[in-house]
Structures are given as C-alpha cells and as structure tokens.
Amino acid sequence: MATDTQFPLWEVFIQAKSGANYIHAGSVHAADSKMALQNARDTYTRRGEGTSIWVVPSAAIVASNPDDNDMFFDPANDKVYRHPTFYVMPEGAKAI
C-alpha cells in the first residue's frame, strides 16, 4: 500500500437490525473517523442496509498469516466431535 496516495483505509461493519451481528461490508478511505462514518453511510447503506455502523482503521486489524494456516486451522479438520452434530436439536430452536 506504499503507493496509495489516498486517505487512510477504514473497514466498515454494518448491523442490519438492532441486536444482529455487525457484518463486514467493505472498506472506505477517509481522513478521520467522522469522515469514515459518513463515507461508510454513503457507500454501504444507500438501500436501507443498516441501522448502525462501525468503522475501524484497517491498520488496527491484526490478521493471521496465511503461512500459519497449517498450524492455525488444519488441526481442527479431523475433530468432528467438536461439532455439536451428535445432539438432537430440540424442536423450536430453529435459529441454532
């Protein structure tokens, strides 16, 4: 990103309705947090997608390294017993 002459990058998270998870919608450029919120509003909520927005400086996000994938994620692949698939779901618990 060294050649990026634009404003700093911010990641945008939108909550579709009260109580729901914030979901990553994309990113915007902005000079400060206030502009980031406005740009996020203008870019991602024009069609009534959200009721609340979070913006986070992209630089503040710590991401896992793809080189570590074998160490990070592969061990989970053969542990089926970690999935709650051996239980019978009670009726009416559709959201689980």
Binding site: H29, N39, D42, T43, R46
Partner: peptide, 11 residues
C-alpha cells in the same frame, strides 16, 4: 475527488 465523495454527492 474520491470515490466515496462521488457517491455522497450523487446520493
């Protein structure tokens, strides 16, 4: 001047 502002103004 930037894509986000372009969207804001046309909005």
């Amino acid at each position: 001047p930037i894509l986000e502002e372009d969207l804001a103004l046309t909005n």
